[in-house]
Amino acid sequence: MNASNGVAFTPRTCEELFGVWAGQPEARLLAGGTDLLVRLKKVAAWPPLIALERVSELRGIQCVNGWLQIRACSTYCELAEDHFVQAYAPALAEAARDVGAPAIRARGTLGGNLANASPAGDSIPPLYVADALVELRSAAGTREVPITEFFRGPGQTLLQPQELICAVRLPIRRGWREAFVRLGQRAALTIAKVSVAVAVRVERDVVQEARIALGAVAPTVIRAREAEVWLCGRRLDEKTCEAAGAAAARAAEPISDIRSVADYRRAMCAVLVREALCRVSGQRGVHEHA
């Protein structure tokens, strides 16, 4: 048995939580545990844990004044099944449907995925293309940062000591189409090797605005801004999708690691962007996923 004499707190409100945290500055937050408990398995002496399980302020998904607000402890199951998320953040719903396996989707949370800050975190590219804001809270108050500025590097974020993610807010936009595509070693379990989210606003077949986000091809998730600009004013036909894929892949700066080599990731990036764009354009992608 691990850490059989560790200490765990289960506050019910954020106020209570910050009170506990002030007295235990070295404590770690525990949401679904699907990252943290795996990591602690290799650790002999656990830090005190503060479980978010019962903090009701951190749960729930709602629409407020033109924004979709997703609280941090929403699980992948909740994201995948929520009608607002399906309607206003379809790429996020799609990503959530494919994370891990059922038992991981039942426990893993959006806040945990963001705080973990893996460049392969599946919820992140969809939030990039939705222009999401991350709401952070500490005893001193709340602040909001654009998702594209929240990550500093692998495992690194803007979170300050004793600050937590309380929610993510997405502007409710009309007329946008989104898609999420990922490529992993084994669909169910591995962290996505390369993942792509796209969002486009199309009028009379012509792209007005575009967002392309690439996961696992750089130290953080990135936007392929040149490809986005290039797409504007064009028709989303097969050739355009293909060329945009190639342009987006030029933004990738993949590191070679065990999961795959850099060139392969860059090549896949082009394929996945093409596929995601084909999908939002209504054409069938070349590379269909189960």
């Binding site: 765990a8 289960t10 699907t34 844990l49």
Partner: peptide, 8 residues
């Protein structure tokens, strides 16, 4: 159950 603590 390996990723759920008793307090949760």
């Amino acid at each position: 159950a390996c990723l759920v603590l008793v307090c949760q």
